[in-house]
């Protein structure tokens, strides 16, 4: 699971009001090369919750993102390269996503998060 996907996921348990962002418990993180596409990054940037991305990147051991970001930074090649790496090249392979409100763990195996709920959570 890429961190861009993590940025789009929330806890789906019934009654949870503050289910984003899911906390990351990382057991295994992979880096996979992806073609660099600055336009893709510029398109995605406004949709990203920056604080959640910085937190997720730190949780998988990547600390190169600034704590705050604005669209003016998209002119910097350096910034784009770091954003590219954080959003697309880092994969949470094994671990869990944890609901910030209830502490419920959603396991991530072979890069696939399992968001299926138990009957009493729907």
């Amino acid at each position: 699971m890429r961190l861009l996907t993590h940025n789009m996921l929330s806890s789906n348990i019934k009654g949870v009001t503050n289910g984003f962002p899911l906390l990351i418990e990382a057991e295994k993180v992979l880096e996979k090369p992806v073609d660099f596409n600055p336009d893709f990054l510029r398109n995605m940037f406004p949709k990203i919750d920056w604080k959640a991305l910085v937190g997720a990147a730190k949780a998988v051991g990547y600390g190169e993102l600034p704590d705050a970001a604005d669209s003016a930074m998209l002119d910097s090649d350096d910034f784009l390269r770091h954003l590219h790496h954080a959003l697309l090249q880092l994969h949470l392979e094994e671990g869990a996503l944890v609901c910030p409100e209830t502490g419920r763990r959603f396991p991530v195996n072979k890069g696939i998060p399992n968001m299926l709920l138990h009957e009493d959570e729907v």
Partner: peptide, 19 residues
């Protein structure tokens, strides 16, 4: 492709809205 085991799009409905 990014893969998620879930019922339809449960867990994505909040942040993926309109995307």
């Amino acid at each position: 492709a990014e893969l998620i085991t879930t019922d339809i799009a449960s867990g994505l409905e909040k942040r993926l809205t309109g995307l």
